[in-house]
Design a protein around this nucleic acid. Structure first.
Length: 277
DNA sequence: ACACGCTCCTGAACGC
DNA sequence: TGCGTTCAGGAGCGTG
C-alpha cells in the first residue's frame, strides 16, 4: 500500500510528465471513494493547465489554474498515466482525466482504487491551507520542524505504545505500518514500549531512523505490495529490503532469531524480540 | 488531551 | 471446485 515514499515517487513521476498539461475532459465513474467525489468534475477541470504536483503528508496535490486536485491513494489506489492507444476503462478505474501534454501528445490520467479507501476531491487555492483534510496533520518528517526534540516532545508523557505513536498522523505524518516496523527495528526499540519510556538516546536514534528509512525507500523508488504500480503504470515490487515487515517466522537478518508478529492497535507488528528492547 | 476501537472497501489467501 | 471466513490497512470519528 502506498506510504509516504510511494506517494513521493508517484508525485515525482506524475510531475515529470504532466506539468503544463491541459485537461481536455475529466470524468468520475463513482459517486464517492472514502469521501464524495465532487460533481461536474469536467466543468471544474476542463481547459485548466497543470501547474505543479506536490505531496502533503500522503496526499497528492495537483495544482491547476484556479483549482487544486487533492488525491489520496488510500490502501490500494494507483494513479497512472496511460496511452490513448488501446485504452479501455478497467474495473475500479474511478477517475479518468484526458490530458493534452505540453508537447502535444494526449494521455489519460487514471485513478484506480479497488478498495476505495482513496480520496479525490477539489479545493480552491485560497482554501487549501485550511482544508479540513489537513487540519489535524502532524509534522512532516522531512521538514525542519521534525527535530529529535520535536519527537521527544511528542513522546513525553505519552503512555501509548511507541509504534502507534509514530504512526499517529496527527503527530507525525507519513509513517505507515511498514515503515513504523522497519524504523523501530533499526532503532532497536520494542514496538510495545510506552512512548514516554524512551530515553533521549533512543529518541535521537528513532528520529534518525524514521528519516533514513523513508529516504531509503524513496531512493529505492518506494516500497510496495503486489497491488501497487508506479505512476507510469509499470507494476511490480520495488527493491526496498524489509528487515521485519512481513517476515514472520523468518530468521532475523541480524541475530538469526525468529521474527515475531503481534497485533497492536488492530495492526500487524513485526519485530525481533532479541534486537528490539 | 489522550487512548482506544470501530468503520469504510475489495480481493487475495486460506480452510473445510 | 466452490463456498465462506479472515485479513490487509489510512485515517476520521465516536466514546470513555
Amino acid at each position: 500500500m502506498p506510504e509516504l515514499p510511494e506517494v513521493e515517487t508517484v508525485c515525482r513521476g506524475l510531475a515529470q510528465s504532466l506539468i503544463g498539461a491541459k485537461v481536455i475532459s475529466a470524468e468520475a465513474y463513482a459517486p464517492k471513494l472514502r469521501i464524495e467525489i465532487p460533481q461536474n468534475l469536467n466543468s471544474k477541470l476542463k481547459n485548466k493547465t497543470i501547474k505543479s504536483i506536490n505531496r502533503k503528508a500522503k496526499y497528492i496535490l495537483i495544482e491547476l489554474e484556479e483549482i487544486i486536485i487533492i488525491a489520496h491513494l488510500g490502501m490500494s489506489g494507483r494513479m497512472t498515466i496511460q496511452d490513448h492507444e488501446n485504452f479501455s476503462r478497467k474495473k475500479h478505474d474511478h477517475i479518468v482525466i484526458d490530458l493534452k501534454l505540453k508537447a502535444g501528445e494526449k494521455k489519460y490520467l487514471v485513478l484506480n482504487d479497488p478498495r476505495r479507501f482513496g480520496i479525490f476531491t477539489l479545493s480552491s487555492h485560497e482554501d487549501i491551507n485550511k482544508h479540513k483534510l489537513f487540519s489535524k496533520l502532524g509534522i512532516e518528517p522531512f521538514s525542519e520542524e521534525f527535530t529529535w526534540q520535536a519527537l521527544e516532545k511528542i513522546c513525553s508523557k505519552r503512555t501509548k505504545n511507541i509504534k502507534g505513536t509514530i504512526m499517529d498522523s496527527s503527530l507525525i505524518v507519513g509513517v505507515g505500518n511498514i515503515y513504523a516496523c522497519e524504523s523501530l527495528f533499526k532503532s532497536g526499540i520494542h514496538p510495545e514500549r510506552p512512548a514516554e519510556s524512551l530515553s533521549k538516546k533512543e529518541i535521537k536514534k528513532l528520529h534518525k531512523e524514521i528519516i533514513e528509512t523513508l529516504e531509503e525507500a524513496i531512493a529505492a523508488g518506494g516500497s510496495t505490495l503486489k497491488d501497487y504500480s508506479k505512476a507510469n503504470g509499470e507494476s511490480g515490487y520495488f527493491q526496498f529490503n524489509f528487515k521485519v515487515y512481513g517476515k514472520e517466522s523468518q530468521p532475523c537478518q541480524v541475530c538469526n532469531s525468529k521474527i515475531l508478529r503481534i497485533v497492536q492497535n488492530n495492526r500487524s507488528t513485526f519485530y525481533c524480540k532479541k534486537c528490539q528492547k
